[in-house]
């Protein structure tokens, strides 16, 4: 199969993820969408690795997974503490960063 198709798939997944981040309010869903974007990137890396015939892309994909795992740990912790303090998982309730 033509590896380019994997890239199309990656782009599609990334777009879905990005759209989800922008329009959904539930923090869990936003979080999952971010994961989706990360994995779309991973897919693209692996596809590139295949296309170029070297291992660079696969190595970076592993890095990304590690980062994603770390991010899940931190992110979920934030979401849980947010839910505890506000009793809601909506990202719009946490708008303390405005000036």
């Amino acid at each position: 199969m033509n590896p380019v198709n994997y890239l199309y798939l990656a782009a599609l997944l990334f777009t879905i993820g990005a759209t989800g981040v922008l329009i959904r309010r539930n923090a869990i869903v936003v979080f999952m969408c971010i994961e989706l974007m990360l994995n779309a990137c991973n897919l693209a890396f692996v596809a590139f690795s295949r296309m170029h015939g070297n291992l660079d892309g696969q190595i970076i994909a592993f890095f990304t997974m590690v980062v994603a795992a770390a991010e899940v740990v931190v992110g979920l912790a934030i979401i849980v503490s947010l839910f505890r303090s506000r009793h809601s998982a909506s990202v719009d309730d946490a708008s303390l960063m405005k000036l």
């Binding site: 981040v21 922008l22 990202v91 719009d92 708008s95 960063m97 405005k98």
Partner: peptide
Amino acid sequence: LQNGYARSYAVSMF
């Protein structure tokens, strides 16, 4: 512009 909504920051990043 700094309204504190994560989404709007994300939009500007995108």
